[in-house]
């Protein structure tokens, strides 16, 4: 999945649609759901004093939706998300490298303009 062409083949519903990415998500979610069912029965993880789980709140605010929209546009432009770009870095090609730097810039821009709570 670090191949952006494969990601775009999933996103391009009007083209030669490739559903592989759904199976990746499905496989990952099923595995994790099953595993964490057992893991969370423990009182703590192996190397820490407690689990650090983000709250699964029901708050759907503009930050969540707008953030996901902006993320989606960027993802759809070239087919890289943060994880796939990092994984593709070892290809030694230009695009994952440039993307990763731009990713960092985007994150820093956020800290600068938006994170003033």
């Amino acid at each position: 999945m670090s191949n952006p062409d494969k990601v775009l083949a999933f996103l391009d519903i009007a083209g030669n649609w490739d559903l592989s990415l759904i199976l990746v998500m499905f496989g990952a979610v099923m595995t994790l759901t099953t595993a964490q069912h057992f893991i969370l029965k423990r009182s703590k993880p192996v190397c820490d004093s407690h689990f650090h789980l983000p709250k699964t709140g029901n708050l759907i605010d503009y930050r969540l939706v707008l953030g996901a929209m902006i993320f989606g546009v960027g993802w759809g432009l070239v087919g890289f998300c943060p994880g796939s770009a990092l994984a593709a870095l070892s290809d030694g090609k230009r695009d994952p490298f440039i993307f990763t730097i731009a990713l960092g810039i985007g994150m820093m821009l956020f800290s600068r303009f938006h994170n003033k709570k």
């Binding site: 983000p54 930050r63 969540l64 939706v65 707008l66 953030g67 996901a68 929209m69 902006i70 993320f71 989606g72 546009v73 960027g74 993802w75 432009l77 070239v78 890289f80 998300c81 943060p82 770009a85 695009d95 440039i98 993307f99 990763t100 730097i101 731009a102 990713l103 960092g104 810039i105 985007g106 994150m107 820093m108 821009l109 956020f110 800290s111 938006h114 994170n115």
Partner: peptide, 16 residues
């Protein structure tokens, strides 16, 4: 690629 990276980085943080 640069525009996409900035969007993804900014959007991921805004959308948590």
């Amino acid at each position: 690629v640069i525009v996409a990276g900035i969007f993804v980085g900014y959007g991921a943080r805004l959308g948590n």
